[in-house]
Write a protein that binds this DNA or RNA. Sequence first.
DNA 1: CGCTAAGTTGAAAGAAGTCAATGAAAGTGG
DNA 2: CCACTTTCATTGACTTCTTTCAACTTAGCG
Lengths: 225, 225
Amino acid sequence: MAHKLDIDALLARLPLFRNLDAAQLALMARASQQVRVAKHQFVFHRGDPANGLYVVAVGGIKLAIPSPSGQEKVIEFFAPGQAFGEAVMFLDKPYMVQAQALEDTLLIWIDKQDIYAAIDHDPSFAKRMLAGLSLRLHALVQDIETINLQNASQRVISFLLKQPREGDQVHFPFNKNVIASKLGLTPETLSRLLHQLSAKNLIRVDGRDVQILDPEALEAQLYGS
Amino acid sequence: MAHKLDIDALLARLPLFRNLDAAQLALMARASQQVRVAKHQFVFHRGDPANGLYVVAVGGIKLAIPSPSGQEKVIEFFAPGQAFGEAVMFLDKPYMVQAQALEDTLLIWIDKQDIYAAIDHDPSFAKRMLAGLSLRLHALVQDIETINLQNASQRVISFLLKQPREGDQVHFPFNKNVIASKLGLTPETLSRLLHQLSAKNLIRVDGRDVQILDPEALEAQLYGS
DNA sequence: CGCTAAGTTGAAAGAAGTCAATGAAAGTGG
DNA sequence: CCACTTTCATTGACTTCTTTCAACTTAGCG
């Protein structure tokens, strides 16, 4: 029963549930289940039915489109506090993407019926949900923009500039294969481009750590060339 | 005042509002405004604030990302009955896309506050809204899949096969420049690829009318080569 | 009828991908 | 703690696909 308490506390901290009253929250907690996924393990595959949504409690998840040729296109990453799988749940369609743990991860799973109940009970929950989906839509449109309107080098630069920075330091959250896929590049191309940027003294790369030497010059590359 | 009556009838027929009761519908109608847009005219530009959503009553709208170099990337088309602009409304962010009329178009505009009121009043409205957003998200993920995992020829083929068919006839809803942009291609490339498919006797092109001669062989190209 | 927008075609350049070999790092088990 | 294996990353040579630029044709519209 210690488990249940954990879930309660976790849920209460999630942005999605912030406005639920105690009773509603308790209901959610009772309906939800913990799911543990080891690194590299799949949460679901393309084609699986979607009966609920997941919230990341601890760890990290990547959503990707599998391709017949074995490679995959990474769509999005999810960190603790973020929900995924809702969109497909509302459509009664099977997943078109696969979810895989990037590290050992603890997920909360909530059944569709309970989500619907919460929507009926609390309009502000519905709004929160709408805002969540809108945010994702926004991000996807941005991705399409990046893929279509920017060349490989500009995509890498935008990505670098979008990453959270500590001083001038950026740290890749995942290995470069995954980053490359997110950017719609091959690992080889990413490697070459990072090398080029280093050669121009715009950045300095050390494994997953990147030092942004000249942010202005980098930004300029997005328009200039 | 004949205008108001028009709107009432129009709104009642929209999928989005199907579950609203008469009072709520009347409220919506009162709050909504008709917007007329001539062909090629813009409904909004990137950067404009979003204070409500639009529903297409008559005509057609394209959403596109503008690019500094003048070209644009078409994101989506909207036909009568479809709503657009909601996602950004929920986020309190300015539009990141621009909306332009593909033909003379009549739009209904509804203020954000009234949408919120409808959500508060009717959970099923919220669910409908959620389903709408989910559908768009789904479509965008599919677009990303198409762009990333398929080459130009496969993209054209998928597009052809996805279009509504009457017998073996497909009709492009817009000019080929717009289609090309939606597929992430240059008009030249699209032209060449259609020509190639014709040469292989898989299709026959006559202006905006395309005859699908061999759907199976077309489909096979998506995997084989 | 004439003008502008849309579509086609060719030749050439360029960007990114593929294949293959090598090197570095990191995890595993004795 | 070290040797070993496996995964990750880099680099070079080459190929391929798509774009670009330019000329030309066709279609649609005032």
